[in-house]
Design a protein around this nucleic acid. Structure first.
Lengths: 350, 350
DNA sequence: TTGTAGGCGTTATCAC
DNA sequence: GTGATAACGCCTACAA
């Protein structure tokens, strides 16, 4: 039965009748006489020795931890990132420290500053908004940081971006090819990174494919189901001739709300109104009709971010140029725009 | 501009012209002469000093970290736990280390053993299966552990349980009250904790409410959408008189698969077949018809587990009896059994 | 009030 | 090959 207090190399050294240096050597596989090795291993075994990672970290100044900071893990987009990041880090021998900051900018900055405490060797962060304070903290960060989300050119850290512009273009082109011309757009808040970029993408995309943008068909609310419902009600309020024949929703939750109201009004989807969501979360496949959705590649963004960070960590000779990676979007066509009616198998088994 | 190498209390001491002890005292708010305090704070400020948490941990033998280990964060049940655990720990000043073990029992045991490395002050774990090895490791754990999921009586650690028995009873009673008698059951693997307990709960529940259990209406597969679809097809294969008039599905994903096939066959839900899921995930509200689902209180289980652990951590005088907490289930009635047709707002905004 | 010194558990550099 | 011994950065008796 192993003793209950924690054995250290000193304990083992005494027990085995050697010096702590020899114990350390054995435990680290350095050359040692056979007999010594045996004695040490036997003692370690019988005492139930486990190396203390904190002491190791102090000596090596490496924690073997990487932090990942996001606004809310409940958001499927961040969850998708996390699911990719986790195994990549584990594979490389790093533990994952998870920070969920809430919609609080200060907490986000706090995480950035917290790096100075050296509890982690690096950080992956997907900021809600990028303020000058963010850039200042990134500048002075004492450990490698990778940012998921767009950063101004010339920013000092590695950066993994989505391409919502192209993603929205794909969706609009799909709708145009289906003969739709009166495209409604339901967005989240314009003072968030995704809200603003999706708004810009919608405007650019409409122009790109030569469609007329009717401001009456553009609604802004929250990234929630309720917004989708309310906006859709509003869009269906006036003259039928003015109704949209397609809706682009800035995320899947909004699209679900839109579907609720279309169903309630007896409008057929996609025959009368086609609906497209964004982010391609599990909800898209769960809804009925299943939702066509633009994927901005969250999973891949997570994976790429983790790889960039590991790369930095592996190469101590830093000073390299910050790298920018842009992940390709993709369009997943399902029943809500007339695509495949066979449901795909959801992602998360139990 | 702060120097780029890391200032330590030694650096500050030199810069301020005092001893490291004084620096430490100032930083920890111990009584110091005013002038000293000023000098030290000024030096710390201008050098951009941040205390090194590793060194602190080595000295204090507290890491201010808590580990949370689950099979897969993609599983909404574990995600719900995580979402509750995280803020509770943060509030108490602990960082969260996340382990996703995959379906691998060895990795799970590895996490338990890893506690010996002292990288965390405590652990919350929700094991896939509880083997004798698990119990042995729990016995010798060097830090407080809380297990989410049932443990044999007399196990040495705190334990937060679901009550699937009562949850299933609620669902079956609901179906019986709707006049349903031929209840089908679609389950996941029987060699998993949830699979086994849900099977037992179904059998007990049918007995409890005086309904006849027809083994032909019981199907076992995976906890996936495909299983729901396949089982439902099989259940609808024979004589119409033998078809079930209600389906209890062991999780929401299975229920979605059942809905797919019922829709494909033109069977009305709930009029011809009522459907109930389990776990009450976001998918339940997203589906159409929205899914009635049994919640086993994952969120609350997470919260309670975190509280139990904090409790242990706060009270160094340990040796207290292990505590067992059982969380009440609840039934969320929606359209798939004739409940409210108004969709609720999904959980995760963006 | 302040400084010196020892120790938390490891690793690594010396001599022997 | 092995054993003292000095760090790593911090806290804290103890002595001044």
């Amino acid at each position: 039965m192993p003793s209950h207090s924690n054995p250290t190399i000193t304990t083992i050294a005494e027990s085995a009748g050697v010096s702590i240096a020899s114990v350390s050597r054995v435990l680290n596989g350095l050359p040692v006489r056979d007999a010594t090795e045996r004695k040490v291993l036997a003692a370690a075994q019988s005492l139930g020795y486990v190396p203390n990672s904190v002491a190791r970290s102090l000596k090596s100044s490496r924690t073997n931890q990487v932090a990942f900071a996001i606004e809310d893990i409940g958001n499927p987009v961040y969850l998708a990132m996390l699911r990719e990041i986790q195994p990549v880090l584990k594979q490389a021998g790093y533990r994952l420290v998870l920070h969920s900051t809430g919609a609080d900018l200060d907490e986000e900055l706090e995480v950035l500053r917290g790096l100075g405490q050296r509890y982690a060797d690096g950080l992956i962060i997907s900021p809600i908004r990028v303020t000058p304070e963010h850039l200042a903290e990134l500048e002075r960060a004492t450990a490698p940081v990778v940012v998921i989300g767009s950063l101004p050119d010339g920013s000092p850290v590695d950066n993994v971006r989505a391409d919502s512009r192209t993603g929205v273009e794909m969706a609009l082109r799909h709708l145009r090819d289906l003969g739709r011309r009166r495209i409604g757009f339901v967005n989240g808040p314009l003072d968030t990174v995704p809200g603003r970029s999706r708004d810009a993408a919608f405007r650019a995309g409409m122009r790109r494919w030569g469609m007329v943008l009717d401001e009456d068909l553009v609604h802004v609310g929250a990234f929630r189901r309720r917004t989708g419902a309310e906006a859709t009600r509003a869009l269906l309020a006036g003259d039928a001739a003015a109704h949209p024949d397609a809706l682009l929703c800035a995320n899947d939750l909004i699209a679900l709300g839109a579907l609720d109201v279309l169903r309630e009004r007896g409008l057929r989807v996609p025959e009368e109104v086609a609906v497209v969501g964004m982010d391609d979360t599990d909800l898209a496949a769960a809804s009925w009709p299943a939702l066509t959705s633009v994927s901005l590649g969250s999973a891949e963004r997570g994976r790429r971010a983790a790889q960039l960070l590991l790369d930095r960590l592996a190469d101590p000779g830093s000073g390299r140029e910050p790298r920018v990676v842009t992940v390709e979007p993709s369009l997943h066509v399902r029943a809500s725009t007339g695509g495949d009616r066979v449901a795909d198998d959801g992602a998360a088994p139990r």
